[in-house]
């Protein structure tokens, strides 16, 4: 590869331009934190509050992290929300049937893998567009959740304390006044999923090939990538993540309801999109998704503490997503 002085200058320029174009969302995120720190002086920038936030976003985070895997290939999985509900219902029904917690959890996670397998077969072997295929399975999983639960919420004595206690527990990390500060179990799970997905996407041949499929599926195929098989596996991982997120949700609310995961799908996609604005080529990266999830969580937390009306809060969050994507696409157009 030949290199000369002018090329090095170009390189430096490209690096700077890249930094400016891709750091907008991060700057916005920091601005939001600074703003809340000023306006909520006593409680916002505290360890306790940030542990709260981390726990509040943990379910969304797990689903968004694993959603990133299919979005790397340029695909979507719209069924994650109903898969989350279904996983919660299946675990709760097994608990009601006096099965041990571990059995309920493992079966629910297995159902997540199976659902993902089904999505993957539809998308990569039958060849249905992901949007349509997972829109279909969204309805199927949701219907299955209603059918199995009879439409009712499973709660109370049916949910073992071991299961619901998990979401309330954590690792003691210190004391605030007389209260023990816990590093929440749910946050720990989200961090583990983050580490696994990051390693998978950024450090393995699997991830490299997924990005190749996302960049140009035809070229990846002709370049010796097993496109179909990898797509199938990616959808299975997303299904698994959806089920895990659903179980975390069920643990947190100590109950299972056939609709409780429905809101997670759009938030997860929004978080991935926010993260994509931080990459030069508009590729999803799981660390970008993390920032996206945190933006959503911090806005919810901070605006609630500032007593902003719930509906105004929704408008603000939507506006910030649109602003981030707009500014990043304008910056990219201007190059």
């Amino acid at each position: 590869m030949t290199t000369d002085a002018s090329i090095e200058q170009t390189a430096a320029r490209i690096q700077w331009g890249r930094l400016l174009r891709t750091s907008g969302t991060l700057i916005g995120f920091l601005a939001i934190i600074v703003f809340f720190t000023i306006n909520i002086p006593n409680t916002f920038l505290t360890v306790a509050n940030w542990l709260n936030i981390s726990q509040q976003v943990s379910m969304l985070a797990v689903i968004a992290f694993t959603m990133t895997i299919v979005m790397v290939m340029g695909d979507f999985d719209l069924s994650v929300g109903s898969m989350a509900s279904l996983a919660g219902i299946i675990a709760a029904l097994l608990f009601r049937d006096s099965q041990p917690v571990i059995v309920g959890v493992l079966v629910a996670l297995g159902v997540g893998l199976l659902g993902g397998l089904f999505n993957g077969v539809l998308v990569s072997y039958v060849g249905i567009m992901p949007f349509v295929a997972t829109l279909g399975t969204l309805t199927m999983f949701s219907g299955l959740a209603f059918l199995l639960s009879g439409g009712e919420t499973i709660f109370g004595r049916d949910i073992p304390a071991d299961f619901s206690g998990f979401a309330r527990g954590g690792i003691p990390v210190g004391m605030v006044g007389e209260r023990t500060l816990l590093f929440p179990n749910l946050t720990l799970i989200a961090l583990i999923v983050l580490a696994v997905v990051w390693a998978l996407l950024e450090q393995t041949t699997f991830g490299r090939r997924l990005y190749a499929i996302g960049g140009n599926a035809e070229a990846a195929l002709l370049g010796g990538v097993r496109v179909r098989l990898l797509r199938l596996i990616a959808f299975m991982l997303t299904g698994f993540g959806a089920a895990l997120g659903g179980l975390m949700y069920a643990s947190r609310v100590a109950s299972a309801n056939p609709t409780q995961g429905a809101g997670l799908m759009l938030d997860a996609i929004a978080a991935v999109f926010l993260g994509m604005t931080m990459s030069e080529e508009g590729e999803p990266h799981v660390l970008g998704t993390l920032i996206g999830v945190l933006i959503l969580g911090v806005l919810d937390n901070g605006l609630t503490q500032m007593r902003v009306d719930s509906y105004v809060r929704e408008i603000l969050i939507g506006a910030i997503i649109v602003a981030a994507v707009t500014s990043s696409s304008l910056a990219k157009r201007g190059r």
Binding site: A212, G223, E281
Partner: peptide, 9 residues
């Protein structure tokens, strides 16, 4: 461009 390269990588 369409069959050979992953332009974004």
């Amino acid at each position: 461009r369409s069959q050979g390269l992953i332009l974004s990588r």
